[in-house]
Nucleic acid binder design. Sequence first.
DNA 1: GCCAGAAACTTGAATGTTCAACTAATAATA
DNA 2: TATTATTAGTTGAACATTCAAGTTTCTGGC
Lengths: 153, 153
Amino acid sequence: MSDDVAWLDDAEMETWLALIGVVMRLPNALDEQLRRDARLSHFEYGVLAVLERAEDRTKRMSDLAYLCNGSLSRLSHVARRLEDAGLIERFACPTDGRATLAKLTPHGMDVLAKAAPGHVALVRELIFDALDKEEAAQFGALARRILNRLEES
Amino acid sequence: MSDDVAWLDDAEMETWLALIGVVMRLPNALDEQLRRDARLSHFEYGVLAVLERAEDRTKRMSDLAYLCNGSLSRLSHVARRLEDAGLIERFACPTDGRATLAKLTPHGMDVLAKAAPGHVALVRELIFDALDKEEAAQFGALARRILNRLEES
DNA sequence: GCCAGAAACTTGAATGTTCAACTAATAATA
DNA sequence: TATTATTAGTTGAACATTCAAGTTTCTGGC
């Protein structure tokens, strides 16, 4: 249990507090807009958005969970609700009997299309209106480096 | 419901996906370490850490909620659990009868001190080992700008 | 000084997420 | 080809968070 670790200096602490602030507040901001405009959580929106871009609008559950940055268990619960609402459908994978495939339905595409403009507007307002083009690219590159670390563990 | 919004271009999408990846994965990574080493969630750790730095190790609940980036309701539930565990105590504010003050107990300080090294080590590993000093400062400044937006709404 | 409205918290119910156990299917090993 | 281990997914219970009241206290007209 790593003792004798260098404490964060003032500059590091500022960075950390800014990051953790964004990390803790952004999901609520996204949820609120989506919930209000489309009765969708941000995680649900992410599932639909990933499926829309996928080959044949279909993905394996475990791949989907990875791409949505969530656990398989979380996805499984959410997928059941989305399926009950008719936004996706699930069926066994023909080549691997263990796997389940999730596919976006036409109705799911409609709901996603209705929700997207408001969502994109909010993302633009919160992120890309606050940063110019170069800053945004810089920020993204650094976030990607952190994300790579997170994905290793 | 803001229609006709400019979609995200490729560079913006990359930035957004990197950010949202960090936002969704970092809390789990922090929770796991703290849960394992100190039976604390990251939010609970945050509450204790803010109190430790506060004047007289005491804060009003609503100020504490703001500083911890959470809702007052969330804090209220968490505070009850922390109080039951003897890590904090709560009492009425002498100058404003509506307010509740939360104070870190000696036992709470102990638990925090035990949890801190492992937590800081993880933060360092995930963030500050991936970024050099200048990059970290840059990243923090940009995150702060986004956080300011989030705090406005 | 009263009264309407706002602010600060708390609470219980509804909802969402994690955790641990479980089933079923495939891959690996002998 | 049996046997075991691993992988994929689901499920129900435990736990955490949100949401919508509800209580109490304070503030600002009047």
